[in-house]
Amino acid sequence: MGRMAPDTAPPTEPQDSPQGYVGLDAGDAERFARQRGWTTVRSLPPGAIITMEYRMGRLNFEVRDGVVTRAWKG
C-alpha cells in the first residue's frame, strides 16, 4: 500500500464576511458564527483594550447595547 502524504495545507477559516454580522443581536451573531465554523467568537465592549495577536479561526465582535457594531477576524 502507498503511504499518504502528510496534510501540509494551512488551517482555513470560514469563507464568511465579518461585515455580515454588524447590526445583529450579539447572541444570534455568536450562534451564527459558530454554526459557520468559527472556532472562537469573542464579544467585546466598545473601546476594550485587547491584545493584537492574530488567531486563525477567531471572530471578534464589538458589542454596544446588545448589538454587534463592528466585526473582524483574528
Score class of each variant (00 low, 15 high):
R64D: 12
T39M: 07
R34I: 11
P14E: 14
I49W: 09
N60T: 00
P18Y: 03
E62I: 07
A29M: 04
G37T: 12
G47S: 09
G20H: 01
A33L: 00
Q19C: 01
A48I: 00
L24F: 12
T40P: 01
R55T: 12
L24C: 11
Q19L: 11
Q15R: 14
E30W: 10
W38T: 14
M56R: 02
E62R: 00
R31W: 10
A29C: 03
G37Y: 15
S43D: 10
I49T: 14
Q35P: 05
G57K: 05
T51I: 13
Q35S: 15
A48F: 00
R36W: 04
I49Y: 09
V63Y: 06
G57W: 03
T51Y: 11
F61V: 00
P14R: 08
R34F: 12
G20D: 15
R58K: 02
S43A: 15
P46V: 13
V22M: 03
G47V: 07
G20L: 02
N60G: 00
Y54I: 01
G57M: 03
R64T: 07
L59W: 05
L24R: 15
S43Y: 06
R31T: 15
E30R: 13
N60R: 00
G37W: 13
R64G: 01
N60H: 00
A33S: 09
M52A: 10
S43T: 12
G47N: 14
G47P: 03
Q15D: 15
F61L: 03
Q15L: 14
G57A: 06
R34D: 08
P18W: 02
L59G: 02
R42V: 03
V22D: 03
A26V: 11
P46T: 07
F32K: 15
Q19E: 15
G27F: 12
A26R: 00
E30G: 14
T39F: 06
A29D: 04
R36M: 08
D16Q: 09
D25F: 02
T39E: 10
G20C: 04
G27M: 11
G37I: 11
T51C: 05
D25N: 13
T51N: 14
M52N: 08
F32C: 07
Q15G: 12
Y54N: 02
D16P: 07
A33N: 02
L59V: 06
F61R: 00
E30A: 15
A48Y: 02
R58G: 04
D16T: 09
Q15E: 14
L44F: 12
A29R: 11
Q15S: 13
P18T: 07
M56A: 09
D28W: 03
W38E: 08
R34K: 13
E62W: 00
P18N: 03
W38N: 11
G47C: 10
V41A: 06
A48E: 08
G23H: 03
Q35N: 14
Y21N: 06
L44S: 13
T51W: 10
M56C: 06
D25I: 05
M52R: 03
P46G: 01
E53V: 06
R64P: 09
F32P: 04
